[in-house]
């Protein structure tokens, strides 16, 4: 029931709200996929990957480079290639890093995005350095911003449905078993490393796709897609919503992204503070970690029940 109302509201919004909110909502839909795909590995498989932005960035840069090159492929083909490239990297990184635990996994994955950003800078002739690569107007998802909005909405829904199905499948149940107790899972015959790796690749695939869609939605790619602030925003959204629940990260992603880009930005402008709106985000993250590390929405639900 709630889903239907929410969908109806999202379907009507372009006709009743200012254009910039429509644009931001489109970005938010893609951001939701970032968060849900991270939750797949962090919330369901229990592997804290702090380098999720690597997959987003690889997806985005792959399609951007293919489109600015002389290959006349349609946009969606290169987005898919971006997703597959991200999966390949996910497999490589996963195969090496998933043996590491706790600190070490977090540490290595936290460093990967920094390496990517440095490589973008060193080979700035190819990747455009810190200025990024602008795509032409003709590479946009659609000519019309409202059409772009609906495409992003459809993309988000498709990804959510796919990930929900995955989680409810036998694969998802095995992943949950691994998260709860790795040794027990091994004892009952689950190939822990293999399933972790599958989860890692799936997570990378969806992130890569979303990165590619993002590139064509805003017709520009830049190192911000790899960078630590985006990673922290993803984590904050997932943590606020509650890890390991599908609805939680979705609500969290909407809340955080709109708060960051719409509410915080407007507060900053209204008070004419000369600060970045990200300041609020970091304060919020610190408060959330200190006060309710298990998530705000699960807590609220428990309070109501």
């Amino acid at each position: 029931m709630w889903w239907i109302i929410a969908l109806a509201v999202l379907a009507i919004i372009p006709f009743v709200s200012p254009p910039s909110l429509v644009y931001l909502l489109g970005l938010t839909f893609i951001f939701v996929v970032f968060v849900v795909s991270w939750d797949l590995i962090a919330g369901y498989a229990g592997q804290i990957n702090l380098g999720h932005t690597v997959f987003i960035g690889i997806g985005a840069y792959t399609t951007a480079l293919l489109q600015t090159g002389k290959i006349g492929l349609p946009i969606w083909a290169t987005i898919l290639i971006g997703g597959l490239t991200a999966t390949a990297f996910g497999f490589l990184i996963g195969a090496i890093c998933l043996r590491l635990r706790g600190y070490y996994l977090a540490l290595v994955t936290a460093i990967l995005p920094l390496i990517c950003i440095q490589i973008l800078n060193v080979y700035s002739e190819i990747f455009g350095g810190y200025e990024g690569i602008p795509l032409g107007l003709d590479k946009a998802l659609a000519k019309d911003p409202i059409a772009e909005y609906y495409i992003a909405l459809a993309f988000m829904l498709a990804c959510i449905v796919a990930i929900t199905l995955l989680i409810r499948s036998p694969l998802g149940i095995k992943l949950k078993a691994i998260r709860e107790d790795e040794e027990l899972a091994e004892a009952i015959g689950i190939d822990v490393v293999r399933y972790k790796l599958i989860a890692f690749c799936l997570s990378a695939f969806f992130a890569g796709l979303a990165g590619g869609v993002m590139a064509h939605y805003r017709i520009t790619v830049g190192p911000d897609l790899f960078d630590v602030p985006l990673m922290l925003t993803i984590i904050l959204a997932a943590v606020i919503g509650g890890l390991g629940t599908i609805y939680g990260p979705i609500i969290g992603a909407f809340t955080i992204y709109l708060a960051k880009t719409y509410v915080f930005a407007r507060i900053v402008q209204m008070l004419s503070l000369n600060v970045s709106d990200e300041i609020f985000l970091y304060i919020l993250l610190i408060v959330v970690i200190l006060k309710c590390p298990e998530g705000i929405f699960p807590k609220l639900r428990r309070l109501i029940a």
């Binding site: 804290i48 706790g102 977090a106 610190i286």
Partner: peptide, 19 residues
């Protein structure tokens, strides 16, 4: 919580940087 320590100090680092 190891990961929480990483997250909170990282958030602090970025907060101070922005300030």
């Amino acid at each position: 919580y190891e990961v929480m320590v990483i997250l909170i100090t990282l958030a602090l680092a970025l907060l101070v940087e922005e300030i």
